[in-house]
Design a protein around this nucleic acid. Structure first.
Length: 259
DNA sequence: ATGTCGACAATATGTCGA
């Protein structure tokens, strides 16, 4: 079973590019981030025509996540628990049906820039809430995949120029520490497990020739519970998609599990 | 430091967010 995560930077502005990739890669499950539309504006039928069940947690203009699955889904949750006042659409969760069900969580973790603003506090608070909720999900002792745009550069090997990113929220010690804390709950970074080569970037800014210069960062991750990691077959970063017509600034990451 | 996008309110470009 192939489970993908992709920050598409507007599903409607990117629809042809996104559908082209879905037709070629044909993931069984996909977590999309930054769909940038309300539920009613999500191009549901285009994905249903490709055979997907569609779960949308949208928002006007900003953020928004979706979960697509060829198999029926159960136990759908929209929104990260722990703060009723949080109105940003960044979390979607569902159990994918099958002989061995797998719980998939799709996240769009807050960017947090600039560091000297309330946005950074929101990011760290969100990561703490995620930690608390993942702790509960891990207690279920079932295959679990937490995939998405984490907006965290875990290690210096995950950025072309670590010094240039020192003051960025994505590479702050607190952000990296919260990501490590999440892993220390018992999750495994799929890319590091099966590949781990330095420079496995997933994002290149549109600006300043970041893509042709390979000034990238690795911020899109799939973390696996032990029960999911035991079934891990592969993890691929679809880097070539960054060179397509009208690309997102992120590329898809695909995890394959023996399910 | 910034060579780019996208949504939106608004009718042209400016603002915000990334």
């Amino acid at each position: 079973m192939k489970i993908a995560t992709w920050n598409v930077n507007s599903v409607n502005a990117r629809l042809e590019t996104v559908l082209k990739w879905f037709r070629e890669a044909s993931p069984d499950v996909a977590c999309l981030q930054e769909i940038k539309c309300v539920d009613e504006k999500f191009p549901r039928e285009a994905f249903e025509d490709l055979g997907y069940n569609v779960v949308v947690h949208g928002q006007k203009t900003y953020n928004g996540v979706a979960l697509l699955s060829k198999s029926p889904v159960e136990d759908v949750r929209r929104g990260l628990p722990g703060d009723e006042a949080d109105d940003q659409a960044r979390y979607v969760e569902a159990v994918i049906s099958g002989p061995t069900p797998v719980r998939v969580v799709g996240i769009y973790l807050p960017n947090g820039n600039p560091v000297a603003s309330e946005k950074f506090g929101y990011k760290l608070g969100w990561m703490e809430r995620l930690n608390r909720h993942v702790r509960e999900l891990l207690a279920l002792e079932e295959p679990l995949v937490v995939a998405g745009d984490y907006n965290v550069i875990p290690e210096p090997a995950d950025v072309h120029d670590p010094v240039a990113w020192m003051d960025d929220a994505l590479f702050q010690p607190q952000s990296r520490g919260a990501f490590r804390a999440l892993k220390w709950l018992g999750l495994t970074d799929a890319y590091m497990e099966v590949d781990g080569a330095p420079g496995g970037y997933t994002f290149w800014d549109y600006q300043a020739g970041a893509w042709p210069r390979n000034h990238g960062i690795r911020i899109d991750h799939a973390l696996l519970s032990p029960q999911a990691c035991d079934r891990l077959l592969g993890c691929e970063i679809h880097r070539d998609v960054r060179d397509w017509e009208k690309p997102s600034d992120h590329v898809p990451v695909v995890v394959e599990l023996a399910l």
